[in-house]
């Protein structure tokens, strides 16, 4: 009974949406990369980098929005590195991605230490503040939860229809999808596949970095080691759960975030009966179960993981 009441509190929904925001940014980023045929396992490291860079920019006196832009730019740079190896050199996307993750995460910590050698407690910045949208924020429960968030959350949620529109309604989006389905067809129509893929990986990686930056600039106000905490890997799973569709990705992110928000609250009721680790585990177990159910029938991009080499004997 208590759980059902929980589902009707503003606090629960506000927390869910807060958890959804970085997740959906990262998931959309990964989705764009994979739609172009490139798996980007650098996501975890790129998010760490974004979290560090966005935060550092503001800490050094920069403005919040240019900080977001800076994080996006750094993410795109790492996306470019990823595509140099995977798109141009045609190397293993798995190995390169994990390499990028290790490299980018370590580099963030290193840069952090280098710039703030004497900081013992993580220094704080003034993060994005909640902005209540007039009238809408006064609707009980859902309105209060959804329309009283930071601008970065609004951006994250708006990005879902934007990515959908670009992928399905613009020539560039068609080229990206086609590059992930049948790169030869793209080449045969006179479009440079390698450029399309690189472009998609850079944009996607930029959004991953903004997802990371959300944590240090909107959800919290400081940069901690290990703060991404597997969100990147969850995003990779969500892309599969979503069958590579932006709308379904949002749905999946909401399920995961809802369980995450729920587990924090349920822990308080359960007392000593069930160990709290069980609740920590719950969102991950549920996402595995959901994946098993949904992903069996998933139609993955045909050319995912397949490098394209021009002029090879066909």
């Amino acid at each position: 009974m208590e759980i059902l009441e929980l589902l009707l509190t503003t606090g629960f929904w506000a927390a869910t949406i807060r958890i959804v925001s970085p997740l959906i940014l990262a998931t959309l980023g990964e989705l764009i990369c994979e739609r172009a045929g490139v798996l980007n396992l650098g996501i975890e490291g790129i998010m760490t980098m974004g979290a560090m860079c966005g935060w550092m920019w503001v800490y050094q006196g920069g403005d919040l929005w240019t900080g977001v832009l800076f994080a996006f730019f750094i993410g795109a740079v790492f996306g470019f590195i990823h595509s140099c190896f995977t798109v141009y050199a045609g190397l293993s996307q798995h190995v390169t991605g994990i390499g990028i993750t290790l490299f980018a995460a370590s580099l963030s910590y290193y840069a952090y230490r280098l710039l703030l050698p004497s900081a013992t407690t993580p220094p704080k910045i003034v993060p994005f503040e909640n902005y209540a949208i007039p009238f809408l924020a006064e609707i009980p429960v859902f309105g209060e939860a959804l329309f009283n968030q930071t601008p970065l959350t609004y951006f994250a949620l708006l990005l879902v229809p934007i990515v959908w529109y670009v992928l399905y309604r613009t020539p560039a989006g068609l080229a990206v999808r086609m590059a992930g389905e049948c790169p030869v067809a793209v080449e045969a129509q006179g479009i440079n596949v390698l450029r399309v893929r690189t472009f998609a990986v850079m944009i996607g990686s930029g959004f991953m970095a903004v997802g990371g930056a959300f944590l240090t600039m909107s959800a919290f106000d400081a940069f901690y080691f290990g703060m991404i905490n597997g969100r990147g890997w969850i995003a990779v799973a969500l892309v599969i759960f979503a069958s590579w569709k932006p709308g379904k990705a949002l749905f999946g992110a909401f399920i995961f975030a809802g369980l995450e928000a729920l587990q924090v609250r349920v822990q308080q009721f359960s007392g000593d009966v069930i160990p709290y680790q069980f609740f920590l585990m719950l969102p991950y177990i549920m996402s595995i179960v959901a994946m098993i159910i949904v992903a069996r029938k998933a139609r993955y991009p045909r050319a995912l993981l397949v490098p394209f080499r021009k002029g090879e004997r066909i």
């Binding site: 560039a172 999808r177 086609m178 389905e181 067809a185 045969a188 045909r302 066909i314």
Partner: peptide, 30 residues
Amino acid sequence: MVHQHFTLADNLSVMENIVLGTESLFAWRQ
């Protein structure tokens, strides 16, 4: 060129396969 092995993306529609590359990649709509 019509290749011996077709260069068509199976998961996309006929229309999408045909219009690919006929419009500017920087256009905001099709």
